[in-house]
Design a protein around this nucleic acid. Sequence first.
DNA 1: CGATATACCTCATACTACGAGGCATCCGAG
DNA 2: CTCGGATGCCTCGTAGTATGAGGTATATCG
Lengths: 114, 114
Amino acid sequence: MAKRSNPDFLNGVPEMTILKLLESQPMYGYELVQAIRLRSDNHLDFGEGCIYPLLHRMEKEGLLSSRKETVSGRERIIYRTTRTGKKRLQETVHVWQETVQGVQAVLKGIQYAT
Amino acid sequence: MAKRSNPDFLNGVPEMTILKLLESQPMYGYELVQAIRLRSDNHLDFGEGCIYPLLHRMEKEGLLSSRKETVSGRERIIYRTTRTGKKRLQETVHVWQETVQGVQAVLKGIQYAT
DNA sequence: CGATATACCTCATACTACGAGGCATCCGAG
DNA sequence: CTCGGATGCCTCGTAGTATGAGGTATATCG
C-alpha cells in the first residue's frame, strides 16, 4: 500500500479497537477476540487469524507490551498498550472520526464549497 | 476473502460512495473522483486507479449502466445506478451504519450485556 | 471417554486501494 | 505557435489486510 492518501480506516479498524480495549484493561488474545465482538454489540467480529498476527506486529512496532501468565494449565499472553500505543490510538481515532464524517457527508448529500 | 463475517465497509467505501453519488446524478469517472473528494470535504480521496476498475466491475455486476458522450472532443463515459445498484446501496449503507455504530461503541467504552 | 471451551499459532487466498505510468485532446499563457 | 496543464480514459505491479481453515495442547464437564 506504500504511502496512501486515504488513511487506513477502511482497514485498520482491528488495530484501533485493540489499542482502545487494551488501554483500559490488559487482555490476552483470545479474550480480545471476544471482547471486540461483545463491545461492538456483534457488529464487529475479527477472527483469531486476524488478531494474533496483528498483536505480534503491534508488539514488534512498540505499540504493545506483553507478559506471560499461566492460569490453570493454560498459558496466556497478556498485552497492554504502551505510551507509543496510546499516542497512536489518539491519532488513529482522530482520522477515523474525520473519515466517518466524510463518508456520512457523502451519504447525506451535504454540499461543500468548491 | 470468500465469505467474510465482517462485511466490506472496512473496504468497500469507494463502491458505496459511487453508488450514492450516481444515484442523485449521473457522472463520468473523472468527475466522480473529484466529486468524492469534494463531497467528503477532502476526507476521502480515491485515485483513478481505484475508481476506474471499480466502475468496470460494477457495470459488469449490473449495479451501473453507462452511455458514451463526446464533449468538445473529449469522450466521457457517463454512469448511472441501476435498480440493482440502488438496492445494493441501501443494503450497504445499512451495514455501514451498523459497523460504524459498533466501532463507536468500542471507542466510547459502552458495555453491552454478556 | 469424548466433546467442548480455552488458548495459542500459521498458512494460502482473495481482494482492495495505491501510486505510477501511458495515451490523447483541448485550452490558455507566453 | 508552442508548451504545459487540465481533462478524460486506461492498465499494471505492489503492498497490505482480513478471512477461513487448519493445527497443537490442555482443562472441564457430562
